[in-house]
Design a protein around this nucleic acid. Structure first.
Lengths: 220, 220
DNA sequence: TAGATTGTTAATCGATTAACAATC
DNA sequence: TAGATTGTTAATCGATTAACAATC
């Protein structure tokens, strides 16, 4: 194997990647309340995690802390944003102007963290032409052409499960390479396309099952 | 250790639990298209998973398959619903009548899978009294009393991050034992309360980071 | 300095995957 | 029967946690 392989940035484990935004949120809050420096144990206590785990997670940012002191909050925030790519804007199209779709479109926080939804589509002729959050709903047939022309690489699916696969096909046809899928439906896409499932039923299943287990163990 | 301990149902690993709803969705679809029996390899192909993993996951339902044939679809669906508790209704209150909150309230699918949102609250006096999806928005101060009186054990938080902790406090005060938290904020709650985080920023972080890695590896 | 905290290596834990006998 | 598929045990893999030297 050539030496360059070792120089390639080691991929960040997914569990770590999922925790980084939580650290970022917490650090922003601490910075706002005037904190200049923070230790892993502080973060661990607030987020209910193991301090060693946090140390390992933060290592991926390249930031080094001072023994007995901790990490500089602003530098750590900056480094996290760099790793998460929140400085570069990700342009995306969204399909499905239902309540979830418009909620995501209107969620200012996403914009703040580098997600820019440039167009919203729907297949419903009654919805096409309506304006939501300042953007006109476009016919979904326009997606492939527009995505290709604007070189959009990210697509968000918020349509009902039955329509999700056909929307994914349109996205792939439009050159989209990463799909954020909120529909409870497994998608079949080309090998070079990434699908990130955001299945809220999974979360609900964990919650209700844990609740039942907890009630049983307390014999209630 | 007394023998009864061994009889207690072994807790289902979280990764397994998160996959069960995906199996359920897929099986429902297969049943609708008339399929009576299904094999692990069929499921594996459709969901892009390992057949052995599926066999192990399905074992938690207690359903046994027939070698060379597979599993009976209707029985498997029933068994999954039982494990996931989708037969018993989970009553819940929701706080935060913003776009995400109303989207969740209006999402019929949740109702179908055993989640019944009995009341929606907000702290904004302008919103209180408005009706969304047939339910009047109530002042958040009423939450503890109502939750306790109706014996609601589940709460959903869809308020901005700054307000999430105070809402969680109200929920705990109202006897709520499981919180589904959509706000990007770590919550501090009593030991007997479960918090399920549904942080969409984690999903976004995974998506954009993977996309960048993919683009780099293809040297584009 | 003494002691708290970092960074890192080793041990543990748990989940995924491989191997294979049982069975229809 | 032969061969596909199940169920289960063992091996592998990867993430978390523990231990501890380095350091401010």
């Amino acid at each position: 194997m050539p030496k360059t392989t070792e120089l390639l940035t080691h991929p960040i484990p997914e569990p770590t990647l999922r925790r980084l935004p939580r650290y970022h949120h917490f650090l922003m809050r601490e910075e706002n309340s005037g904190k200049k420096v923070i230790s892993c144990s502080d973060i661990a206590r607030a987020l209910n995690l193991d301090p060693t785990q946090i140390r390992k997670d933060l290592a991926v940012t390249g930031i080094v802390g001072k023994p007995k002191v901790g990490y500089e909050v602003p530098a750590l925030i900056q480094a996290l944003e760099k790793v998460l790519g929140w400085n570069n804007v990700t342009h995306a199209v969204l399909v499905g102007a239902g309540s979830l779709g418009t909620a995501i479109l209107g969620y200012q926080q996403f914009n703040k963290y580098g997600l820019n939804i440039v167009a919203i589509f729907d297949s419903d002729a009654n919805k096409v032409g309506q304006v939501v959050h300042g953007r006109e709903i476009l016919p979904v047939g326009w997606l492939p052409g527009m995505a290709r022309q604007m070189r959009i690489l990210t697509g968000i699916i918020t349509v009902p499960a039955e329509a999700a696969q056909s929307v994914a096909d349109l996205m792939v046809a439009g050159g989209i390479r990463a799909i954020w899928n909120f529909a409870p439906r497994a998608l079949t896409v080309s090998a070079d396309t990434i699908v990130q499932y955001e299945d809220m039923f999974s979360g609900l299943a964990v919650l209700t099952t844990r609740l039942r287990a907890s009630l049983l163990s307390f014999s209630e």
